[in-house]
Write a protein that binds this DNA or RNA. Sequence first.
RNA 1: GCGGGCAUGGCGGAACUGGCAGACGCGCCAGACUUAGGAUCUGGUUCCCGAAAGGGAGUGGAGGUUCAAGUCCUCUUGCCCGCACCA
Length: 812
Amino acid sequence: MPEKPYDHNQIELKWHERWQNADFYKAEENSAKPKYYVLEMLPYPSGTLHIGHIRNYAIGDALARYKWMRGFNVLHPMGWDAFGLPAENAAIQNNRPPRDWTLQNIAAMKKTHRRFGFSYDWDREVATCEPEYYRWNQWFFLKMLERGLAYRKRALLNWCPKCATVLANEQVVDGCCWRHEDTAVEQRALEQWFLKITDYAEQLLEDIAQLEGGWPERVLTMQRNWIGRSEGTEADFKLAGAGEPIRVFTTRVDTIYGATCVIIAPEHPLNENLLDGAGKARAKAMVDGRANRDPADIEKEGFFTGHYALNPYSGEKVPVWIGNFVLMGYGTGAIMAVPAHDERDFEFCTKYGIPIRPVIRAVDGALAVNPKQAFTDDGIVENSGPWSGLPSDEARRKMSAYAAQKGFGKAAITYRIKDWGISRQRYWGTPIPVIHCPKCGIVPVPENQLPVVLPDRIEITGSGRSPLENVPNFVNVPCPKCGEAARRETDTMDTFIDSSWYFYRYCDPRNDRMPFDPVKIAYWFEIDQYIGGVEHAILHLIYSRFFTKMMRDIGLIRNSEPARRLFTQGMVIAEGAKMSKSKGNVIGADSLAEKFGADTARMFVLFAAPPEKEVDWRNEGAEGIYRFLGRVYRFATRNLGRVDFPAPNDTDRKVRRKLHQTLKKITEDFETRWHFNTCISSVMELVKVLYAEEDKISAQPMCEAIQMLALMLAPFAPYLSQEIWDELGNQGPVFRQAWPSFDPELAKEDEAEVVVQVNGKLRGRIHVPFGTPVQELESRARSDEKVKPFLEGKQIVKVIPVPDKLVNFVVR
RNA sequence: GCGGGCAUGGCGGAACUGGCAGACGCGCCAGACUUAGGAUCUGGUUCCCGAAAGGGAGUGGAGGUUCAAGUCCUCUUGCCCGCACCA
């Protein structure tokens, strides 16, 4: 066969068409093969397919293809973005609810992704975008409502003015909306739906231990911090006079005899009664003053309320202050200030001349008033009535127990994580399936009336109230209980609900009786490998862990964690900044693919850097990959069907060695660290050798080389591999072939190259058989022509021979 | 402030366990084939000295451990990420 030019358009178009309706991507459930569930969670926000997406896909797709070839039964659906944000963006543009568009969008994405040769099980993906998926979101919601895991309350909530909706705490980044990084989040008091993720705080924290090793340490640390468990004591300070007691939370109850005042958060509900009009105004100013500011820049401020409270342990009467550094969102929203033993209290009390009274002595030191700073370590309790003389930890235990016994407090564990606010006043998302009846209160929509679907035509108001409120035949419904006129809930669910369990639905996408069949889940779960950006660390990855535990507790599944292993690929940044539409630095992948083809685009992304590393993207250099693929293709075509091969000779061994070395390298990388950049470079080296020895290679190794090239490139460049595979006269998709195994004997070099150093400097190299004894190694090295001059006239102090590797002479 | 990461040619990066620093690619330089090439093939390319052989220096900086350090230790500089008045 004569050499063919590498026409990527023609090759990719041909296979693109043939693969359109092919079903070989589909997993074979319950087959006898070992199973492997690989899933990518996509970087958002998208709209267009950009280099960041391609990177994510290319990594996961390479792994999936490799696993297929290793004989695994692979479930490889795409990530969740398809029904998430693009749907929202489209809803904005089209002034319509996202359902139809989502399906259209999926079809478009399907096309694009197929074009890049990504091998997903698309039927599963599409299933999670259909309105039917709403039904099961609602079903889960009702289950949670039954169990008290979903509830409604009035609270201060994060409000994004651009989205005109509330946000969960996890969706606030540096005081701004996660979707609008330049828009400050406001606080609004609203009645909203919450999921009780705090009920699972302890488990979410504990089970992190199970993920150790499989998940990046960084993500686990972020989750630990986010959950933020701390053990301490709650205690009531009764007001001197009438009024509700002030409950404080402290981790250092052992220092309570040193409490010289009580400080309340400015937005604390007690202030309603505690403060006069002027006081309330000051408190409000404080709340506003610290909004969206770096705490380090805010000076501690406060004022005396005019009230006093009683220390429940000592009976001491202490002033009650308002302080801007006390957070309503943590603990009880009130603290006892122990300036001698807490830095913040120290700073505050020093400023306002509140007394500082030490009650902890360092274990090896005297009780001393340090006028400069607080002593925050544990020590021995002093001047604390009956507790004096106890070590801090013992005092804490006994004093907590005492509080419980006397009824003014208890040992308490506080978490930083708060319940998940899921209400959204958007015109997309799953409607929350409840009805507000003036008589019966909140009434769940009966299960057989699910799903509650969005009305077809919606007018955007942007008013901050749900646009659904303006659709009478959506809102006005009879109460399912009493039949009287009632109102349907108009809030919709956070789209993070969708993403919390979509990967379960993938296992059973057409089920219309349950969210999924537990038997199928038991087969596929846990996810073997989840791949995505680190930006999901505390949003999606906490929510989906919570959902998994919830589903386990309602008896649907058995696993406690969704994914065994998580790989966080590095972000693709452009011009030093994260790619985002608002910055206008999104680099589309299409131009690259148009110019050089999908194979080149995918492979170039993998070649640019190891997958875990962040890359600052530039398109220069793609030619290198394109040239390489051309070299491979031309080499294969001109040698296929050639008849004038030389007889078997020495070169064959050399070529086969390189072949098996390359295969070894790639195989080992897939099994361990996924450094596909070096995998690709080793194939380049192989091709270099093939070019150099082309005329000398005999028929059999040539055939082997071409076949192996097709197979080992299949995870990275599917179209080209498939084309070569086809030219070789084979049937079927190349990535359903067996991954070639390497022969470790063939991969070995004949001789060891031993480096000779004199005083650590390279002076020569010798070739010896493997396993040459050290004495011989030394004498061979000593007599080497290059080395000799550096030894002459010198005294050899020491010789360090390392078998098969190196000899170092230490001379004087 | 606390916690984590990174630093290697003109550029992306390689060197996985301490043992040849700069694989592979881009870019650049030269040659071959060509009417021509932005196609293809071959060779060169860390820096300095040298025509060459060769020599010297060299992995952000300063020290240390070691026969041997990009890799380990201490300090330091710069950049990036996470958390942050969490009581």
